[in-house]
Design a protein around this nucleic acid. Structure first.
Length: 111
DNA sequence: TGAGTGACTGTAA
DNA sequence: CTTACAGCCACTC
């Protein structure tokens, strides 16, 4: 039941998230698109569900720049605090200048 | 094998 | 602004 050998998909998502520079954020759709899963944004969020501490999942938000996943950080302002500590302005669970700091992952074609 | 679920997205009312 | 439905893929039971 331990699909440690099948976490290839997860690792791919984590790899992209780790590439997100500090002070920038990305969206589920962007990651999904980079993984050729244009409509698999749900899978991205799911992959983050098992993301190791190495992955700055707090930099991943929905297309509106809302901290939709903050609930998974403890349901508190942890996610917002992390972003603020990186220089990201957060207001009412929403990222200020979201489009301005939006980071787009490089297209990573599957070999 | 089939049904349920999900840190999403888009469109519609 | 909210609520609702549909589509998409991967995983669990």
């Amino acid at each position: 039941m331990n699909q440690s050998d099948n976490n290839n998909y997860f690792e791919r998502v984590w790899a992209l998230v780790r590439k997100v520079p500090v002070g920038n954020v990305t969206t589920y759709g962007a990651l999904a698109e980079a993984l050729s899963l244009r409509a698999g944004a749900r899978m991205v969020g799911w992959a983050l569900n098992g993301c190791p501490p190495d992955v700055p999942a707090h930099r991943v938000v929905n297309r509106l720049g809302m901290l939709s996943g903050k609930v998974h950080f403890g349901g508190n302002e942890t996610m917002a605090q992390l972003l603020r500590s990186e220089g990201v302005e957060v207001d009412e669970d929403r990222i200020v200048n979201f489009k301005n700091i939006l980071w787009q992952p490089p297209f990573n074609p599957i070999s």
